[in-house]
């Protein structure tokens, strides 16, 4: 969790100094709005994660964003077939920068046990992925761990990353147009 004490803060009378980057990153990390792209079995475990026992809302993730436009984190939970691949990509493209992707479960990460003609062998063939969660399906604790990892990434991401050539190059390799700023 991003506590204010984590940041390097210079205290003085009546003022505090820190870098804008750190303030923004902490704010982002503690209010990630996820878009659950739940297709199958992992979606039920994701429901359990959102449910009262595991309570995802503890991590500033109370608001599920069902519109990609207002989402920061794409949680892909479940099998993505070849038929669904383009739709997933479209949802990713509709999200505004900065955006992160969490791939929940073996199917989303690698196709899992379904090495078949109809299943996309890992969503990283169509969109870039930040964190993979193994398991078929993963337990809610694992999903929460994956989300914690995402929080770490968000907290330590430099503001310039999304404008860097590496990032643009990575998007180009997926045939995705960057926002172009």
């Amino acid at each position: 969790m991003g506590k204010i004490e984590d940041m390097q803060v210079i205290n003085g009378e009546g003022y505090q100094l820190t870098s804008l980057e750190k303030v923004l990153a902490t704010a982002r990390a503690n209010s990630v709005w996820p878009l659950p792209f739940a297709t199958s079995c992992c979606g039920i475990e994701f429901m359990a994660t959102m449910g009262s026992n595991y309570d995802l809302a503890r991590f500033g993730m109370e608001r599920m964003s069902f519109s990609p436009r207002q989402a920061d984190l794409l949680i892909v939970a479940g099998t993505i077939s070849k038929k669904l691949g383009p739709i997933l990509k479209q949802a990713y493209e509709q999200m505004a920068e900065p955006k992160w992707v969490l791939s929940v479960g073996a199917c989303a990460s690698s196709g899992g046990i379904f090495d078949t003609y109809s299943v996309l062998q890992g969503i990283d063939r169509v969109i870039p992925v930040d964190v993979y969660v193994p398991g078929c399906p993963p337990r809610p604790e694992q999903i929460i761990d994956g989300i914690m990892k995402i929080h770490e990434l968000v907290k330590h991401e430099p503001l310039r990353r999304r404008y860097s050539d590496e990032y643009k190059h990575m998007l180009t390799s997926y045939n995705i147009e960057s926002d172009g700023e």
């Binding site: 196709g111 090495d115 078949t116 003609y117 109809s118 299943v119 062998q121």
Partner: peptide, 17 residues
Amino acid sequence: FPMRKEYHLEDATREDK
């Protein structure tokens, strides 16, 4: 027609197996 016996089950694009 994928369920015909002559067609493979596996995804043809995998190279790591």
